[in-house]
Design a binder for these strands. Sequence first.
DNA 1: ACTGTATGACAAG
DNA 2: TTGTCCTACAGTT
Length: 259
Amino acid sequence: MPEGHTLHRLAGELQELVGERVAASSPQGRFAADAVDGAVVAGVEAYGKHLLVDLVDVPGVHVHLGMRGKLLRFAPVTGAPMPQVRLRLATPDVAWDLIAPSTCELLDAAGRARLLAGLGPDPLRADADPAEARRRLQGFPGSVGAALMDQSVLAGVGNVFRAEILHALRIAPDRPASRLTDAEVDALWSGLAAMMGQGVADGRIITVDVPPGQDRADVPEAVARRVYKRDACADCGTPVVTSTLQGRTVYACPRCQPA
DNA sequence: ACTGTATGACAAG
DNA sequence: TTGTCCTACAGTT
């Protein structure tokens, strides 16, 4: 489920490679792993949906999972990677296999700067500027639903978080972003920071209330969200309305989020 | 064993 | 707006 929370969680897990010399290989052959094979990992960071593995003395690796990408961890290392693995980064103790990413490329300092320049503030990053987020949201020339999906407005929000945060704040997706009140914009930022942060902690997106004592890991996927991919709104039971915006399905409750 | 669909983003037309 | 990447899984046959 690669929205921003997935990448930030992975970045946290990949800290185990920092300071380690890693063997790099590309069984699938579509990444020039020789260029980074044997390098020492200097740091791993997530910016929005992008993952940056910085290496000592050589360009870093830029990964974007796209819609289908996955990073799988094997510890101990049980054997050779599957043939479709784009990139394996491995130490003697652990292997990380990248499957089906939309991007896996070398990225030097200039490329990194160019990438980050195209991203809006990331609610999951401590160094993000909420005031900049407000400016970019209210300056967006379209609906708030479109704004939230634009990574140059906010980085890391995807289709699930869009649906759930707008529902949580009772904002209809087709409201013009320029007409959001200051209070709504601030609530979007802080609400996303909280919701996405919970996503990092859970390793998936759960927006329904979970009774104390119940393990969040036990919440079935089909009822983990309030409107996303639901037939009926989890809050009021009203049938969820779907529409299509720029090729993506938008979910909203017409009662909780009136136009 | 198939078919349809998906959390993303880009290029082409 | 559509096609593409070309995996994984849920649902259907």
